[in-house]
């Protein structure tokens, strides 16, 4: 895996490892514990918000989350390591997740992984040297009826093929300057294309 400390998608800071959360994020995080009967209920939402901002979670993030809900950093660490969506290392600006479970696999998910490998030269667990893309194989995304599925930061690209994946990667690369906007636009187009292809079938 690449150790490149590049920024993540959207408004994540360029100097990720050293940066502390900005004031508006901090006040949003401080408001979360009161939504629960016990402050600890806010731990997952706080971690999720921190990761959305930074792209991954640092030890300082875990200490901060622990302070906000009143549990030890070690306890937070045990929670972070339990859930697959939490990352402790930087990933690419576009973290690709290809579902490898049964419906996607029967419909060619291995070809999608091969396409990413051919196009970008990375396999699962790896990041491109330019820090733009990383790849993971993930478990069932609940997209079995429109398989195979590729997700990027929980944006689903469904009923994909090697051809559509190649086009998607090219589009993301070209628009990497504004990663969040590029991803949102590509996602909206993919959803519209899927609706056309399926004639509205759920």
């Amino acid at each position: 895996m690449s150790a490149a400390g590049q920024a993540g998608a959207g408004d994540r800071p360029a100097t990720a490892p050293a940066a502390a959360p900005p004031d508006d994020l901090m006040s949003a995080l401080r408001a979360l514990p009161s939504r629960y009967p016990q402050a600890r209920g806010a731990l997952l939402p706080i971690l999720t918000r921190l990761q959305e901002w930074r792209g991954h979670l640092t030890p300082a993030d875990m200490r901060l989350a622990g302070e906000l809900v009143g549990v030890a950093a070690a306890d937070v660490f045990s929670v972070v390591t339990f859930y697959t969506m939490y990352r402790q290392r930087p990933v690419g600006r576009f973290p690709l997740g290809v579902c490898r479970n049964i419906a996607c696999w029967v419909n060619g998910s291995e070809q999608l992984v091969a396409t990413v490998r051919e196009t970008l030269g990375i396999g699962p667990g790896e990041t491109t040297p330019d820090g733009l893309f990383s790849l993971e194989e993930v478990e069932c995304l609940g997209s079995c009826g429109s398989a195979p599925c590729l997700e990027i930061d929980s944006c689903y690209f469904e009923q994909q093929s090697p051809v559509s994946v190649k086009a998607l990667l090219a589009r993301l690369k070209a628009g990497a300057g504004d990663a969040a906007a590029t991803l949102a636009a590509a996602h909206a187009d993919a959803a519209a294309e899927l609706r056309r292809a399926r004639d509205g079938r759920p």
Binding site: Q38, R40, G41, V69, M85
Partner: peptide, 19 residues
């Protein structure tokens, strides 16, 4: 945050509680 087992109702409750 990504865990199949959290579909089990008491695992889900622990997860809801931040565990």
């Amino acid at each position: 945050a990504g865990a199949y087992i959290c579909g089990e109702e008491t695992a889900l409750l622990n997860s809801l509680e931040g565990r």
